[in-house]
Design a protein around this nucleic acid. Structure first.
Length: 232
DNA sequence: AGCACA
């Protein structure tokens, strides 16, 4: 029983998170860590007694969630292995995107079931609101998904692999960019292979943050950086 | 262990 019998869901449920991490930092780190698998619609984390140590990450695609469940299973995140499953229910942000969102009023779990049934029986006269959201710019996902020769995303690594750099890029330029992120250690360029570089951080979480922040960064208009984790 | 969105 690895993930239990929970059917695939575009939202993942994460538990065994380090409860000492502040909510905002936790959400940002989760966003950075998981955005390599696809577009993230929302990250939810609460610190209430019942819900601390857990979080939900909603993706725009189920396949992104599936990859995340597999690849990040037991990933040591703030010194604790993440336990990841599919969420049991649909996220509000997803329902909103489909136009099927109904704000919850005070209700108990039993009434929720009844309401869910009622909702599906209703004829779908839901008017989709104005084209909402889709606010964050292009990220890692744009590159990997748009690339026909792309394979599986590499597992998280404290070393980043940078491609599509202008040929004249030197390590000083890259260091200026990457050293603004915590945990930065060093840049390595390969003289024999212009256009690529490796950037090392203290750990995977910090490298992920930098990846998220600088993904697609353009040193020249023709050269959006493509950042992935280096292969181990 | 624990499945929410206020």
């Amino acid at each position: 029983m690895l993930t239990g019998d929970i059917p695939p869901n575009q939202t993942i449920y994460i538990k065994n998170l380090n409860e000492k991490i502040k909510k905002e930092e936790l959400k940002r780190s989760l966003y950075a860590l998981f955005s390599q698998y696809g577009r993230i619609l929302d990250v939810v984390a609460l610190k209430t007694p019942k819900l601390r140590g857990q979080a939900w990450v909603a993706f725009s695609e189920v396949t992104a969630a599936s990859n995340a469940v597999r690849q990040m299973q037991n990933f040591p995140f703030y010194d604790k292995p993440m336990r990841i499953q599919y969420a049991k229910t649909k996220s509000d942000c997803v329902a909103k995107a489909e136009g099927s969102y109904v704000p919850r009023e005070k209700k108990k779990k039993q009434e929720e079931k009844a309401e869910r049934k009622r909702r599906t029986e209703e004829t779908q006269q839901s008017t989709v609101p104005n084209g909402t959201s889709a606010q964050n710019g292009a990220t890692a996902a744009s590159f990997r998904h748009g690339n026909s020769s792309s394979q599986e995303a590499s597992a998280p690594n404290n070393i980043l692999f940078i491609e599509n750099l202008p040929l004249e890029t030197n390590s000083m330029m890259l260091e200026l960019l990457f050293r603004q992120y915590p945990g930065f250690k060093e840049v390595r360029i390969i003289e024999a292979k212009p256009g690529i570089a490796f950037v090392e951080f203290e750990d995977d979480v910090q490298s992920s943050m930098a990846m998220q922040a600088l993904q697609g960064f353009k040193i020249t208009p023709q050269n959006p950086m493509a950042i992935t984790f280096a292969k181990k």
